[in-house]
């Protein structure tokens, strides 16, 4: 098995396959933003779109995940037509950098590697990523670009990140596990030392 350098793990390898995956991820992000929300009460719902950077990150690394989430959110804004919120697109991309960092700590989904140690690191990454993205990045950009009020946007940020953390952990972990099992069952090769 060839060993990848840190930079390659971070950036991903930008061949045609990566590009198509990121594009389809972005499209899926847009579709899930529009259709795939889980209603909790009237008027509030969880979006399942943040599962996309988890999957793309698991396969190709954090930067492809961030591009998929950023482009996906922009496209979702364009088709959903609720206006452009560049602050939230950037925040989602920043959060995805952390969420999609699975290969950096050795969770190679395509080789079927995802165990309890990776799960714990994953949850920590998810929480840190959401805190930075929706606690800092989104707030600064909202105030600078849109002139929104920081208190309201902070409350929305807390709400969004709690929802995201819930989706990324409760839905994300089983999905990654299933993906890993599926990839593992496809190959009968074992690593030789």
């Amino acid at each position: 098995m060839e060993q990848k350098s840190f930079g390659e793990k971070l950036l991903g390898v930008w061949n045609t396959r990566t590009i198509v995956t990121v594009a389809i991820g972005a499209a899926l992000f847009g579709v899930l933003m529009n259709y795939g929300s889980i209603p909790i009460f009237t008027n509030t719902s969880l979006t399942t779109a943040m599962i996309v950077p988890v999957v793309v990150g698991a396969m190709f690394g954090p930067v492809p995940a961030a591009v998929a989430a950023g482009v996906g959110n922009t496209i979702a804004d364009l088709i959903g037509g609720w206006g452009m919120y560049p602050a939230w697109s950037v925040a989602n991309a920043v959060a995805s950098l952390f969420i999609g960092a699975l290969p950096l700590y050795g969770a190679y989904i395509t080789e079927g590697k995802f165990d309890v140690k990776h799960m714990i690191i994953y949850v920590v990454c998810v929480i840190i990523g959401n805190a930075i993205a929706f606690g800092v990045v989104a707030q600064v950009l909202t105030v600078v670009l849109e002139g929104g009020d920081m208190n309201v946007s902070l409350l929305q940020g807390v709400y969004a990140s709690v929802g995201n953390i819930l989706v990324e952990c409760v839905i994300g972990i089983p999905v990654i596990k299933l993906l890993a099992n599926r990839y593992a069952s496809r190959t009968n090769l074992t690593e030789e030392n």
Binding site: W14, I19, V20, V22, A23, I24, A26, A27, L28, G30, V31, L32, N34, Y35, G36, V67, V71, G72, I75, I79
Partner: peptide, 25 residues
């Protein structure tokens, strides 16, 4: 241009994926 391909490909596949999603759901 690779970023541009991502944008146009994503745009183009959205109706397909939306259809798939609705069918599966």
């Amino acid at each position: 241009y690779k970023v541009c391909t991502i944008v146009s490909l994503a745009y183009r596949t959205i109706p397909d994926i939306a259809n798939d999603f609705i069918n599966i759901r």
